[in-house]
Amino acid sequence: MATVTVPANTSVFLLDIEGTTTPITFVKDILFPYIREHLEEYLSDHWEEDECKQDVHLLKKQSEEDLRQHRACPVACASQSGQTDEEKAIREVVEGVLWQMAADRKTTALKQLQGHMWRAAYATGRIQGEVYPDVVPAIRAWRQRGMKIYIYSSGSVEAQKLLFGYSIEGDLLDLFDGHFDTNVGAKVESQSYVRIAERIGVQPQDIMFLTDVTREAKAAEEAGLSVAVVMRPGNMELTDEERSHYTTVTSFGQIA
């Protein structure tokens, strides 16, 4: 296993989650199916709670915005015989959420509801966050050398903390110095990485970014970060040009 030497000025590791610290299958085969399978049950159980009411309010505002923007959106379900107003309202929310998920939308309203559902699932042990076995030992070694470790993922900060706080390896939150999500900007925009460097209080060239997505790697590189592309089972295959351009690793253990 070839070792990758980190640039001497590096003081921060910035880590992607899906396909980097955590198998893509965890998100696709566990997290998202959990939402689809338990959405109606969750809404019915929490419908009268303030947090759920806020989630539903945001989803309805998003739906109204989609209509204004002439985006396709689900037709409100027709009232069925014997169906209460609450049941009808829940059904409409379910249809809207499932439509957003099928369209791979990443709206704040959708991410907020998903985060609240996952929080309940993690807390009751129905879900445990997955991390590759090489991740925790590597991070501990980096921290011992004085490195700071941050997460940057398209999943909300709350969802990130749930994954690492209720992981198969136990509570790992103490390993991280902070978390960033798309509130700081899209991961394929170089300015997002400049903002992250500013918030951490370092120069972009002091950060090494690990991701499995070359579009993100390109944006980070343009911002001045050093980059390594992580090649895990199930990740997108790299082209020959990408392999020759980027430093690649198959395990965090390769990063010395």
Score class of each variant (00 low, 15 high):
Glu95Gln: 13
Ile139Thr: 08
Met231Arg: 15
Ala219Glu: 12
Asp212Ser: 14
Gln128Lys: 12
Ala141Gly: 07
His38Glu: 09
Asp240Cys: 07
Tyr42Gly: 08
Leu15Cys: 14
Asp171Val: 12
Pro23Met: 08
Phe32Leu: 11
Ser154Trp: 07
Ala220Phe: 03
Glu37Arg: 07
Tyr150Glu: 01
Ile149Glu: 01
Gly146Tyr: 06
Ile17Asn: 05
Gly253Glu: 13
Tyr166Gln: 04
Arg143Trp: 10
Gly125Met: 06
Gln203His: 07
Lys53Trp: 05
Thr5Ser: 08
Met117Gly: 03
Val249Thr: 13
Ala186Ile: 01
Arg36Phe: 07
Glu49Tyr: 04
Gln160Arg: 03
Gly155Leu: 02
Ala72Gly: 09
Lys53Met: 11
Lys28Asn: 12
Ser81Asn: 15
Gln112Met: 14
Ile196Val: 08
Pro137Val: 06
Val75Phe: 09
Glu237Ala: 14
Lys60Ala: 01
Leu67Asn: 10
Leu162Arg: 02
Asn9Thr: 04
Ser81Arg: 10
Glu40Met: 02
Ser153Pro: 04
Asn235Ser: 15
Ala159Glu: 01
Leu110Glu: 10
Asp177Leu: 00
Asp85Phe: 07
Gly178Trp: 05
Asp240Phe: 10
Lys187Thr: 06
Ala2Met: 10
Glu41Asp: 14
Glu241Met: 13
Pro7Val: 10
Gly185Pro: 02
Leu98Ser: 05
Ala220Ile: 06
Glu216Leu: 06
Val136Asn: 05
Ala120Asn: 07
Ala89Cys: 11
Ile30Tyr: 07
Arg105Gly: 13
Arg91Asn: 12
Ser167Glu: 01
Leu67Arg: 11
Ile207Gln: 01
Thr84Trp: 09
Phe176Lys: 04
Glu48Pro: 02
Val157Asn: 00
His38Ala: 03
Ser190Ile: 04
Ala103Met: 15
Met236Lys: 13
Ala109Ile: 01
Glu18Gly: 09
Leu225Gly: 04
Ser167Arg: 01
Glu37Ile: 07
Met101Leu: 14
Val157Thr: 10
Asp66Asn: 14
Ser63Phe: 14
Ile35Val: 15
Gly125Ala: 13
Ala186Gln: 10
Pro233Cys: 04
Arg126Asn: 02
Arg140Phe: 04
Glu130Arg: 09
Thr20Phe: 05
Glu40Asp: 13
Ile151Ser: 03
Trp47Pro: 01
Lys61Arg: 09
His245Phe: 15
Val184Asn: 05
Lys187His: 09
Thr21Glu: 04
Ile200Arg: 08
Arg195Gly: 07
His179Lys: 07
Val229Arg: 00
Asp66Arg: 15
His38Leu: 07
Arg215Ala: 09
Leu98Pro: 00
His57Met: 12
Gln254His: 07
Ala223Thr: 06
Glu92Ile: 03
Ile30Gln: 05
Lys106Tyr: 12
Asp29Gly: 14
Ser79Glu: 06
Met1Ala: 14
Asp206Lys: 07
Ser251Phe: 08
Ile151Phe: 03
Asp50Tyr: 04
Tyr152Asn: 03
Leu113Arg: 06
Gln100Ala: 13
Gly253Cys: 12
Arg140Ile: 15
Val184Asp: 02
Ser11Ile: 05
Gln69Val: 13
Ser79Lys: 11
Glu216Tyr: 00
Arg140Tyr: 08
Gln205Val: 02
Lys111Val: 01
Ser11Cys: 06
Glu48Trp: 03
Thr107Lys: 03
Glu222Gly: 00
Glu221His: 11
Gly96Met: 13
Val136Pro: 01
Tyr132Leu: 09
Gly170Tyr: 06
